[in-house]
């Protein structure tokens, strides 16, 4: 009898890397998750503590996958504190993925929202010209810049923005995205990060007629299209997403405005 793929399978944490004082990357061996597409996620079980959705981070080791987690509530803290040799359960990958176009791409991310963009970079065609805009509040919170450059030595321009100006361009990453889009020449924009940032990036790209997609987060209980907690208008982020086209998002009354709390109540951002 084959085990149901929606039952968590236990994996051993092989390495833990500190990215910032509050963000860590945990690596483990998993052939199926290793070949996730950018935008897909896994449901991650931290035994005795909880389960939460996590974008699947790329590893530089074949057959490995990773999660990059920021300390937040109980479950993310439990995952963050899982040591090398510790056990986590995984199920997935779930969801759709970015539609990677040819030409010049602008990637706009912040924080752990960079995870799907890192996987996008790792799977992009060789001739894609990529500009990666990475936003953070302050220089301590910037991560993945060097890893991105190592993964893709050519045709990748990494630009950092910090709100307090302690590294890179001073200011908000959405403003920088708007500026770059104003300069023109991009064929596609891909974004993942805080929803209000994504809403602005989507609006900026659409106003210039540039194809844009965003990977969305919602409260998720099942990841299976069953519980409804991840609904955004009539769509389910776990099965219809996580990636949606800007044209769809522009019509959404929820994107950038409201999500469902754990009780299912519509809650404004």
């Amino acid at each position: 009898m084959q085990q149901n793929p929606n039952v968590p399978s236990v994996r051993t944490v092989l390495s833990v890397t500190d990215e910032t004082p509050t963000v860590r990357t945990l690596e483990f061996a998993d052939d199926i998750l290793a070949s996730s597409r950018p935008g897909q996620f896994a449901m991650v079980w931290v035994p005795r503590i909880g389960e939460l959705p996590m974008s699947v981070m790329v590893s530089e080791t074949r057959g490995n996958a990773a999660f990059t987690v920021r300390v937040h509530g109980a479950t993310s803290t439990g995952l963050y504190n899982t040591p090398v040799g510790g056990a986590i359960g995984v199920r997935g990958p779930y969801g759709n993925s970015f539609d990677i176009r040819r030409g010049r791409a602008l990637l706009v991310g912040g924080g752990t929202g960079l995870v799907p963009l890192m996987r996008l970079i790792s799977q992009a065609p060789d001739d894609l010209e990529i500009t990666l805009l990475m936003g953070a509040r302050t220089s301590d919170e910037v991560f993945f810049g060097q890893r991105a450059a190592r993964m893709r030595p050519d045709r990748l321009d990494v630009v950092v923005t910090t709100d307090d100006g302690t590294l890179g361009v001073a200011g908000n990453v959405a403003d920088e995205a708007a500026r770059r889009l104003g300069d023109g020449g991009f064929d596609a924009v891909y974004t993942c990060g805080p929803e209000l940032m994504m809403r602005r990036v989507v609006d900026e790209a659409r106003s210039r007629g540039v194809f844009v997609q965003a990977s969305i987060e919602r409260v998720m209980k099942c990841g299976l299209g069953i519980c409804g907690s991840c609904c955004m208008d009539s769509h389910l982020v776990c099965t219809d997403g996580t990636v949606f086209d800007g044209d769809h998002l522009a019509k959404s009354g929820d994107f950038g405005y409201a999500y469902r709390s754990k009780s299912g109540k519509s809650t404004p951002y």
Binding site: M1, Q3, N4, P5, N6, V7, P8, M43, W45, G50, E51, L52, A74, T75, R91, K221, C222, L224, I226, C227, S229, S261, K262, S263, G264, K265, S266
Partner: peptide, 26 residues
């Protein structure tokens, strides 16, 4: 609010197991 995750997982032979805990907005 219902129970903490895991609340919905797969089960053997194509089944599903849930303890959502009747989360609902009232």
């Amino acid at each position: 609010e219902g129970y903490a995750n895991p609340t919905v997982i797969g089960a053997d032979n194509g089944g599903m197991l849930n303890a959502v805990g009747l989360s609902n907005p009232g």
